[in-house]
Simulated assay, not measured.
Amino acid sequence: MPGVFTVSLDLELYWGVRDSRSFEDYGANLRGERDAIRGILDLFQAHGIHATWATLGFLFFKDIAQLRQQLPGVLPDYQNQQLSSYRYIDERRWGDDDLYHFAPDAIEQILRCPGQEVGTHTFSHYYCLEEGQTIESFRADLRAAVEVAKGVGIPTTSLVFPRNQANPAYLRVLDELGIACYRGNERMSFYKPRNQQGQSPLVRALRLLDTYINLSGHNTYSLEECARSRPFDIPASRFLRPCSRSLAPLESLRLHRIKRAMHDAATENRLFHLWWHPHNFGADVKRNLDFLRKILIHYDQLRQRHGMQSRNMGEVAALLERMHVG
């Protein structure tokens, strides 16, 4: 089996950062996000990239009035109430900023592009490791996400846990709802799933350093390893950080780090999983798309020389299902 190049994007608009970023300090990213989505899709089509867009359930609605009609009956009771998107719905003064919160237009655009899968990022940007929430409220939230996608003809096969808070105790809910796979975390200790309190400055610093210097290895995975148990864990290999003008002299190191891991996957018949958020590209769309183009050109070379294949998460899950012995 040839090596596999997997891409997933967490599509969440402002819901994904609203507890930590204001419109004022993150507005450029949000305003540029739809341009980034169009540019990413153009590159994917040009290079034959199949990707999973893990899409927040809230984004399927056209406005807040429509969303209010389909809220789940059981809501998370986070100890830190600022984390709750449901509380935000009630407290916010809703104006003319729906483009920051809803995106049925972007979902339609993604579906028109060959090889793209719309997965789920839960309904509300649900945090599975935060104090106060329960498996019952997670089940209600995820069921709502599956149902809203089903309502427009989209089956839900793949899940990305918000903030990468994969909770092993909750995986049975994925099985209950017919979700075949999820994006797990890299194996090094500083990538393990954590709640907000566990995101120490040291952990953040190690992850940043690992972007440029190999601290954690290539983070590529054998398909046999991924096929061991359902739902299938298709782990992350590398977060594609946005271009940073302050760290511009290190950009060649960042690119080299990604290319080396991709080469390892291609030559050793393993899986490499790249991920990011479209809003990461929004403040500097051109530079970020140029960087992504270099990665995809490298994929072209690996495909031609070693037969590497591009598969979205749902397609990887179908492959793993054929390999699974249980």
Rank of each mutant, 00 (worst) to 15 (best):
Asp77Cys: 10
Asn214Thr: 02
His47Val: 07
Glu224Lys: 15
Glu117Ala: 04
Arg204Ser: 12
Glu147Asn: 09
Asn80Ala: 06
Leu99Asp: 15
Arg183Met: 00
Phe190Gly: 12
Arg93Phe: 05
Cys226Pro: 08
Lys192Gly: 09
Glu147Pro: 02
Glu321Asn: 13
Trp276Gly: 10
Arg92Ile: 02
Leu202Arg: 14
Leu41Cys: 11
Pro278Asn: 02
Lys62Glu: 15
Leu111Arg: 15
Thr156Met: 05
Tyr221Leu: 00
Ala266Val: 02
Gly132His: 01
Leu271His: 01
Arg18Tyr: 11
Trp276Val: 06
Trp94Lys: 08
Gln199Leu: 13
Phe23Gly: 06
Asp77Tyr: 01
His324Ile: 02
Ser124Leu: 13
Leu206Gln: 14
Asp233Lys: 08
Gln70Arg: 09
Arg303Tyr: 04
Pro278Glu: 06
Arg241Gln: 15
Lys150Pro: 00
Lys192Phe: 14
Lys62Trp: 12
Arg322Phe: 03
Phe61Leu: 03
Arg112Leu: 09
His263Gly: 00
Tyr191His: 14
Lys62Val: 13
His279Asp: 14
Glu251Trp: 03
His263Trp: 00
Arg305His: 11
Asp233Gly: 04
Val152Pro: 08
Tyr126Ile: 09
His256Thr: 06
Tyr212Val: 00
Thr122Asp: 07
Ser310Trp: 02
Leu129Val: 09
Ser85Arg: 14
Phe60Gln: 03
Arg204His: 11
Tyr26Lys: 10
Asn185Thr: 14
Glu268Leu: 14
Val118Ala: 00
Phe44Leu: 13
Arg204Gly: 10
Glu147Ser: 04
Thr220Ser: 08
Ala248Ile: 03
Gly132Glu: 03
Gln301Lys: 14
Ile89Cys: 11
Asn312Phe: 02
Arg34Val: 05
Asp264Arg: 10
Asp290Leu: 09
Gln199Phe: 12
Ile179Ser: 01
Glu176His: 04
Ile107Leu: 04
Arg260Asn: 06
Phe44Tyr: 15
Ser8Gly: 02
Leu9Thr: 05
Cys226Glu: 10
Leu253Thr: 03
Leu67Cys: 09
Gln116Trp: 01
Gly57Asn: 06
Thr220Ala: 09
Gly3Phe: 10
Asn164Ser: 10
Glu224Trp: 13
Ser246Cys: 05
His256Leu: 12
Ser20His: 14
Met188Ile: 00
Trp15Tyr: 12
Pro235Ile: 01
Asn214Leu: 04
Tyr299Thr: 02
Ser22Cys: 02
Asp284Trp: 01
Ala46Asp: 15
Val146Cys: 11
Glu24Lys: 11
Ile89Asp: 01
Arg241Tyr: 15
Asn214Glu: 03
Gly307Phe: 00
Ile110Pro: 01
Ala149Thr: 07
Leu41Val: 09
Gln309Gly: 06
Leu129Pro: 10
Glu91Pro: 07
Arg287Tyr: 01
Asp105Ser: 07
Thr211Arg: 15
Ser137Pro: 05
Arg187His: 12
Asn80Leu: 04
